[in-house]
Write a protein that binds this DNA or RNA. Structure first.
Lengths: 189, 189
DNA sequence: AAGTTATGATACATTATGTTCGATAAAATA
DNA sequence: TATTTTATCGAACATAATGTATCATAACTT
């Protein structure tokens, strides 16, 4: 098991980072800010993390793995209502992760995961074999994933004016757009 | 008219920034890097710009205003083929603006412009009056604009494997998805 | 040709970076 | 409990970037 001192240090560093994000924005935060806020020695920080990004990623593995574990449990499609609900239930964290003041680390993380899942999903719905068509489908999966994450950030920044279900419905609508084979694939690429 | 020394200084600073983006990525660039590369005095930089972002914005007004002027010429919809074509014709710049190594300044700029235009466009197609429905439509316009910019960045980063027309077709497809009134608006928000 | 102004060079105080070291306190282990 | 292991702190360090200020000079405008 992990040394209790280590657990304590990592936790307080994570909390310091989150609180600082809400105050001054991720990009403006320095390592110095974090160790001042956490009351942790400079050398201690570097004994655990290489930089801010790593602290954010490692310090929030629980939150990050929600989507992943949920999907690896067997379902192919994504339960967006569950996802938006989970975000709503962790509003303070979500604001730090996805709000205006947040950084790009977790946004990119979730975008990539969703894009991968969408790509698998689309490939089951369509028979696309040609190389360039597959590439274009990849673009679209990525673009749709990006738009869903964008919806999420607008929603969070706006203090959740809609229900998680409404957000999931809009997300699913954006996904469905690409489910059927469409004339776009017959266009000269 | 503007002092020739000023024109020269601003131009060389802009060029220095663009070349540095391609080398080390926008976020990692310091003011020191820029003035070293441009061979310009530190005080001179600050006489013209407050920071990197401003240099990037002011130094590329021509590129930025392409979309805006094109639309203000009377058309309501956006000519995405023209837009993607313009990007392709300025590939080096586009790579610095929208590639992996680029910053978020111009991406955000274009996203906001496109989102505004889409919102106007949707409002002419649909009769949406209820406040929350209007807000949700705004989310969707923003999300679609975000996905189009994402398509652009993937395309540019990938060295333009598709024609500008193909990219415009995909973009327009994503836009059309929201043109008709859809069941989503009857969902409980 | 005279007056105006942008520039470069230099200097400055402040702040952050990433690393190293030894003393100390806190933990695991026997 | 006694002993060993190890995480932390505090301090120091060289390096680098920041934003501001001043002044002589060169380049520009009129």
């Amino acid at each position: 098991m992990i040394d209790r001192r280590v657990q304590k240090t990592r936790k307080i560093l994570s909390q310091a980072l989150v609180s600082l994000i809400l105050e001054k924005g991720y990009d403006a935060i320095t390592i110095q800010d974090i160790i001042d806020r956490a009351n942790v020695g400079r050398s201690t920080f570097y004994a655990h993390f290489e930089n801010k990004d790593q602290l954010l990623l490692v310090g929030n593995e629980n939150f990050r793995h929600i989507l992943k574990s949920k999907v690896e449990d067997g379902e192919l499609a994504i339960d967006f209502e569950f996802f938006f609900q989970h975000v709503a239930e962790n509003y303070d964290l979500a604001l730090a992760f996805f709000g205006k003041k947040g950084g790009h680390v977790l946004i990119d993380f979730f975008r990539d995961i969703i894009a991968d899942l969408l790509m698998k999903h689309y490939k089951t719905k369509q028979q696309v074999s040609e190389k360039m068509q597959l590439k274009m489908l990849g673009y679209q999966a990525d673009a749709v994933a990006t738009s869903i994450i964008r919806l999420l950030t607008l929603w969070v920044e706006d203090r959740l004016p809609f229900s998680a279900k409404a957000m999931a419905d809009v997300s699913n609508k954006m996904i469905k757009q690409l489910e059927e084979e469409s004339p776009i694939f017959k266009v000269a690429l």
